[in-house]
């Protein structure tokens, strides 16, 4: 299941907004059993580790680390945010 994060806004920065996004994803986008949850950053202008950390933490807690995947992105804020979150995720 692919989740287009741009639907939550082109600028994704605060923890508060990240928490809300995570709750909305969990409520309205239910993957089939064992299905991979793919986060798609296409059309996102900027994302910060606070927002992304909240979303990843909530989805990993719900579906497990192996089922939550961030799709590749050339957006440098995505790359740097994932770098800083590596320790938190692993």
């Amino acid at each position: 299941m692919k989740i287009k994060l741009a639907k939550f806004g082109e600028i994704l920065t605060s923890r508060e907004a990240g928490r809300e996004a995570a709750l909305a994803i969990k409520a309205y986008q239910k993957p089939a059993e064992g299905e991979i949850v793919e986060l798609d950053f296409e059309d996102v202008l900027a994302v910060g580790p606070s927002w992304l950390g909240e979303v990843l933490a909530a989805l990993i807690a719900e579906y497990g680390k192996s089922r939550v995947v961030c799709l590749p992105s050339e957006n440098r804020s995505v790359i740097e945010s994932l770098n800083i979150l590596k320790a938190e995720i692993s």
Binding site: I11, T13, S14, R15, E16, L45, A46, V47, G48, P49, S50, N75, R76, S77, V78, E80, S81
Partner: peptide, 12 residues
């Protein structure tokens, strides 16, 4: 994207 996200992190 880096500028916007850093301003967002500091401001938030």
């Amino acid at each position: 994207p880096l500028l916007i996200s850093t301003v967002g992190e500091i401001g938030n």
